[in-house]
């Protein structure tokens, strides 16, 4: 990992003046990519023990702005912003990490898979077992409509690779839970032992 990789805050462009400390030399910590002022604007989300979905941050103004720049303005570089926290949470996971996939047409439009990119930057290995079968998005649908949506994932791998294994689904944001539930059901029906989920944001 290069040290002066990011000289300015990726969000507000303020100089970062990263100090070379022993902590950096001795541990394998990621160099910072945003300044502490920007960092403070993100609110941690505290997942309670019995929740099956773990999330790192609340959806507030700063997060809305981040998501807009990353996902819709396509500033791919911003995948680095939360890499240390994502790494911290996923590096020791024993379950198989599998991102929620994008439809190929959507992927061509965005030019990058935003969930995969978060994992890549955080140095977390992952595998795809699912395929998205519709280009429709959940945005703009009522809860009723969302609930009524037919299954929009299908299995990409042979069931032997799924059977009796533990999975951790990864997505950028958790709102109604429908996306995660659909994906979860496909894996469970194929014989998965357990399916949990992790998202960067809790809507």
């Amino acid at each position: 990992m290069k040290r002066n990789e990011v000289p300015n805050c990726l969000l507000c462009n303020a100089p970062l003046n990263e100090q070379m400390t022993w902590k950096y030399l001795l541990t394998n910590a990621f160099p910072r990519t945003i300044c502490s002022e920007c960092e403070q604007k993100f609110e941690p989300y505290h997942t309670t023990q019995n929740q099956e979905v773990t999330s790192l941050y609340k959806y507030n103004d700063a997060m809305r702005d981040f998501l807009h720049r990353y996902k819709f303005m396509h500033d791919t570089l911003l995948a680095k912003v939360f890499r240390d926290k994502i790494h911290e949470h996923l590096a020791k996971s024993k379950a198989i990490i599998t991102p929620i996939p994008m439809h190929p047409i959507k992927l061509k439009e965005r030019t990058f898979a935003h969930v995969d990119q978060l994992l890549k930057e955080a140095n977390i290995p992952y595998q795809h077992f699912l395929e998205k079968t519709t280009t429709e998005t959940q945005v703009g649908k009522s809860r009723q409509q969302r609930l009524a949506t037919e299954q929009f994932f299908k299995l990409k791998a042979s069931p032997e690779n799924i059977k009796n294994k533990d999975f951790l689904l990864i997505d950028d944001i958790y709102t109604t839970g429908i996306t995660i539930n659909h994906a979860k059901n496909v894996l469970l029906e194929a014989g998965a032992k357990s399916v949990k989920a992790f998202t960067l944001i809790r809507g």
Binding site: H74, D75, T76, L77, L107, K108, E109, R110, T111, F112, A113, Q117
Partner: peptide, 16 residues
């Protein structure tokens, strides 16, 4: 910024 682009399927560059 250089990254793997899914539109042109190669290492692609964008202007920030």
């Amino acid at each position: 910024i250089h990254y793997e682009c899914a539109r042109c399927n190669q290492l692609c560059t964008y202007c920030r």
